[in-house]
């Protein structure tokens, strides 16, 4: 096989076929994909499905703690899992820039296969396009996922059942992913390397769902960070939210870079963090279940849903002050002085 992707790899001819069988089918192999038909035929146990799609264009494509492939699997698996669904099948579309290294592509595909296996999902259909040099940046990936959902969990995604007094849990430190990307992009790794938290959370979430049927809301705190999830929840459900800065974990090296650049970690992206709202009486049990998982060791109850200041999220600051958390207008930009 050539060392670099050529336009011919997207032609639909022999080169495409070779790429598919030598790379994608080789690593993603499963009985559904191997049929190589126009569409995968799936069997689903439930009559409610959860269905989601996401595209990944991250730069750099390799970063401490993961790569674009790991993100593409975890992102979609997590979107299904936080909706209360059991992730089952993924599709996977690649848009590749002419000249991209096949070695790097192989690394990405291998990571995707490993992540999918860990998460217990199958990649059952896919697509490959090659675009002229300069028309995309190395490689873009789209994944779409289907998960099985049961009747009693179908409202977890919207949080319609949240009530004042419910507890808010997050499964660990925030801002790792965003600052890892920022640091590798800007060459700012002056202290210990910051690793992205990118991970499939479906097994951890299952552990939580196993111990409680009073989990009322889940959302992964990706772009826009923890703050955005809380603002969305407060506005959409018209409840108040109150969280305590003291209970939110931010790793030392992450805090350092945030301080340096003037970033607020509450708004920085995560790729392995879920915000869970659970009835107060089940909160400790759910917390324990999450903590028993490798991705939830630092989980904590960070606040609660309130019946005051409806539609607003408030932060009790670490020094005893208080302020509103609002949505970010655009990208966070470094401050000048």
């Amino acid at each position: 096989m050539d060392k670099n992707i050529l336009l011919g790899h997207g032609s639909g001819g022999v080169m495409t076929h070779d790429l598919i069988s030598d790379l994608f089918v080789k690593y993603f192999h499963n009985e559904l994909l191997e049929t190589q038909t126009d569409s995968a035929v799936l069997q689903i146990a439930s009559n409610i499905i959860s269905f989601t799609t996401d595209s990944f264009v991250v730069d750099p494509i390799f970063f401490p703690g993961g790569n674009i492939g790991k993100l593409a699997i975890a992102g979609t698996v997590n979107d299904l899992a936080v909706s209360g669904a059991k992730p089952k099948y993924l599709s996977c579309g690649f848009i590749i820039e002419e000249g991209f290294s096949i070695g790097e592509l192989e690394k990405i595909v291998k990571t995707m296969a490993e992540e999918a296996k860990k998460a217990g999902v199958k990649i059952v259909t896919g697509d490959t396009k090659v675009v002229n040099r300069g028309k995309c940046d190395k490689v873009y990936i789209n994944t779409t996922g289907v998960g099985e959902l049961s009747e009693n969990r179908k409202d977890i995604g919207t949080g319609v059942n949240i009530e004042a007094g419910d507890k808010i849990i997050i499964n660990g430190s925030i801002a790792d992913h965003g600052m890892s990307i920022m640091a590798s992009r800007e060459g700012l790794n002056f202290s210990a390397e910051i690793e992205s938290d990118c991970a499939c959370l479906n097994h951890m979430i299952q552990k939580a769902l196993d111990v409680s049927d009073k989990i009322k809301f889940m959302r992964d705190a990706t772009r826009g960070g923890l703050a955005t999830v809380l603002c969305e929840l407060a506005t959409d459900r018209n409840y108040g939210i109150e969280i305590n800065e003291e209970d939110i974990v931010v790793k030392e090296n992450v805090r350092g870079i945030c301080e340096l650049l003037g970033f607020d970690p509450l708004y920085v992206a995560n790729e392995g963090k879920v915000v869970i709202v659970v009835a107060s009486e089940d909160a400790e049990e759910v917390l324990e279940a999450i903590r028993s998982d490798e991705y939830g060791k630092d989980a904590a109850i960070i606040g609660e849903v309130t019946d005051i200041h409806h539609g607003r999220a408030w932060l009790n600051t670490g020094i005893g002050g208080r302020r509103i958390i609002d949505m970010l207008a655009g990208e966070q930009l470094p401050r000048i002085c």
């Binding site: 607020d264 020094i319 002050g321 002085c337």
Partner: peptide, 17 residues
């Protein structure tokens, strides 16, 4: 006077104190 102060004052919720 300084914008950095304005930011800190708001971020830490100092007026509330």
């Amino acid at each position: 006077v300084c914008g950095g102060h304005t930011m800190s004052i708001q971020k830490f919720g100092i007026p509330y104190l």
